[in-house]
Amino acid sequence: MATSVERRVEPVVRRRFLPTIDVQGIGFAATLASICLLIIILMGIFAPLIATHDPILMDPTQRLKPASNAFLLGTDAYGRDLFSRIVYGARISLIVGVGAAIISVAIGLPLGLLAGFFRILDAILMRIMDGLMAIPSILLAIAVVSLAGASLWTVLVAITIPEIPRVVRLVRSVVLSAREEPYVEAAIAVGSSLPKVMWRHLVPNTLAPLIVQGTYICASAILIEAILSFLGAGVGTETPSWGNIMSEGRVYFQLKPSLIFWPGLVLSICILSINLLGDTARDLLDPRLKQRGGEK
């Protein structure tokens, strides 16, 4: 009897009956979001080819022109082509978004792993993170930019700092719950070293939530960059960024709303697309939903 093989597949008892996800619905939104995002990315990469004018060339004779064949979306108060400025603006937003996501994960992941595994470090690290979380991220970014001067690099640092505590907390909480898993104890019992246990059994658990968190950070970084530029604390005013365009357009808002409307629209679509992809990733990677897949 001991060698008899159980061929029968035991139906897994589901403690909670999870509703089936509407794959079709998610598929549509996610597809649309991917297409929008792809367009924006291509726009950024091939900006010199797509733009019809030099985005920083001022022409006092062409101030605040309406949309026409020459100027697809019209011109701003300095006679610069709005369309070309928006095309170039994608570069700043994408660099800031992707950069902030990568840097904050690269710093937050090791810190979170350490905090999750070593109690003493945990106490100290989490106090520091709590403190950082208490500072409203815009104010923190403003302080950094106003001290270190406006540049893309400063803005990136300023936006990344407040995101790090969120990554650290996330990784830490995943590690704390994963290390209670019997398979981690089993790994310790078969003599695996601490780094091996972390790398093989804990880090993979953080991957899925980090991908999701990374997309959210990307979206929020783009948003904050736009706000900083809007407030005059962003990348230098000479750089065309969506926030800068809107900031300069404020004065003429009642006269020419399109100066805020177009960059605002592109910005919103960009952030919306990233957020939707994040939601989709979360639904797909949700461990509870994943278990359902494993049942088959």
Partner: peptide
């Protein structure tokens, strides 16, 4: 009403709220 149209509406509205910058909503 999880999974119903109400749920979808609420979730869509919330993604929108997250994505449209505050000042754009203001304007």
């Amino acid at each position: 009403r999880h999974g119903s149209w109400i749920d979808n509406m609420v979730m869509s509205a919330s993604v929108l709220g997250f994505s449209i910058p505050v000042f754009v909503i203001g304007y």
